[in-house]
Design a binder for these strands. Structure first.
Lengths: 184, 184
DNA sequence: CGGTACATGTAAGCAGTTACATGATTCT
DNA sequence: AGAATCATGTAACTGCTTACATGTACCG
C-alpha cells in the first residue's frame, strides 16, 4: 500500500496532472518507487473517490483534457498517519543473485556478459545520483529542510556504489573460475 | 518469472518435497527470493505439467501424502537457458526511503521508533549472515565450487552492512533536526 | 488536413499475499 | 480416541505489468 502514499507525497510537494506525475516518477520519486502512467491514473481515481485529493478542471469532458490534482487535508492526514505507522521491511528479491546461485549448479556459461551490462547500468545510475547531489546539495551549505532529501539521495548513492563494487568483484571471481559447467 | 527458476535451482541442488522446499526457502534461498508454501505448491504443479520436473510417489492419493520432486533434463536445460539470458535489473522499491521523503513534507513525527526497529532487524540479519559465513566459508580454505555461493552470501552481508550504517546515520540526522512538523 | 506529441484512460493477465480447508501421521 | 504436527492444497484478493484505445492541441 505504498503507491497511493507516493502519489500523495508528490502532490503535496507540488499539485500536478497525471502525466506530470508520471514524469516526476521517472525522474525523482521513481528512483525508489517506480510507477507507470496506468498505475498512476488508476490510483488518482481511487484517491479522489476516497476524498484524499481533488481535481481542478473545467468539469465536463474527461479524455484528453488536462486535470490538475491537489491534496486535501484528509489526504495530508492520511499521509502523516502512514509515514509514522510501523512497517516491516520486505524481504529482498534479486534476480541476479538468484541467477548466480543457479549458475553454481548449471554452469556460468553466458552470465558474464550480463554481469558486465549490469555493472555498466549501475555505474551510470551512480553517476546520475552524484550529479544530482552536486547540483542540489553542494558541500558547505546544508539547509536543515533539505537534510532528509539528501539522506534519501545518499541511500541511492551508497546502494549503487555497493552494486558496482559487488559486480566488479563478481566478474573477478568468475574470471578466476575453472570456466564453463557447474557442479554435479 | 523467477520463482520457477528458484525452485528448479533448489531441486537440482537436492530433490525435495513441497514442505522441504518451503523450509529451505525460509533458510537459504529465501534470503534473496522469498516464497510461501502456497506459491511453491502452485508452481510445482505447473513445473510438473510443463515436463520440467517429476514427482516420485506411490501414485494414487494426493492430499497429505508426501511427494518428492526431481528435476528432469528439460528442467535443467530451461534453468541453464534462463541463467544465461539477459535480464534488466528491476527498479528499486523501498518503503522506508519513501516514508522519509514523505516525512520531509508532513513531519518526522513517529518515524524514529520504526527506524530504530529496522536498524535492530538489519543488525540481526547481518549477524545471521556472518554466522553462516564463519560456518560455511571459514577463512583460509576456499574450494572453487563454493566461490559463487560465497559471492552471493557476501552480497547479503554487504547489503545489510549498508542498511545498518545508513539507518544509524538517518537516526543521527533526525536527532539533529528542528523536531516535529515538516515543510509547508 | 495529416502527422506528431500530449493527455487520459480500459482490459486482460500474472505474480504474490492472506485466509482457509483437508488428509495423514505420530504421540499420549 | 483426541490433540498436535506434518503435508498438501483451494479460493479470493490485491498490486503490477503489458497491450491497446481514445481524445486534444499544435505544427507545417
Amino acid at each position: 500500500m505504498s503507491l497511493p502514499h507516493a502519489i500523495l507525497t508528490a502532490l503535496v510537494e507540488k499539485p500536478s496532472s497525471g502525466l506530470e506525475l508520471t514524469r516526476r516518477f521517472d525522474r525523482s520519486i521513481g528512483y525508489f518507487w517506480s510507477a507507470t502512467h496506468q498505475q498512476i491514473y488508476r490510483e488518482l481515481g481511487k484517491l479522489e473517490a476516497e476524498g484524499y485529493i481533488r481535481a481542478l478542471v473545467a468539469d465536463q469532458p474527461t479524455r484528453g483534457q488536462k486535470k490538475r490534482y491537489e491534496v486535501l487535508s484528509e489526504g495530508r492526514a492520511e499521509l502523516a498517519r502512514w509515514t509514522a505507522a510501523p512497517q516491516d521491511p520486505k524481504p529482498m528479491r534479486d534476480t541476479m543473485l538468484l541467477r548466480l546461485r543457479a549458475a553454481a549448479v548449471v554452469g556460468t556459461e553466458g552470465i558474464e556478459a550480463d554481469l558486465r551490462r549490469h555493472l555498466d547500468l549501475h555505474t551510470r545510475q551512480l553517476a546520475e545520483y552524484e550529479a544530482i547531489q552536486e547540483r542540489d546539495f553542494p558541500p558547505g551549505k546544508d539547509a536543515p529542510q533539505d537534510r532528509l532529501q539528501h539522506l534519501v539521495l545518499r541511500a541511492g548513492i551508497d546502494l549503487e556504489t555497493f552494486w558496482t563494487r559487488w559486480l566488479t568483484h563478481a566478474l573477478e571471481e568468475l574470471g578466476r573460475l575453472p570456466a564453463g559447467g557447474g557442479a554435479n
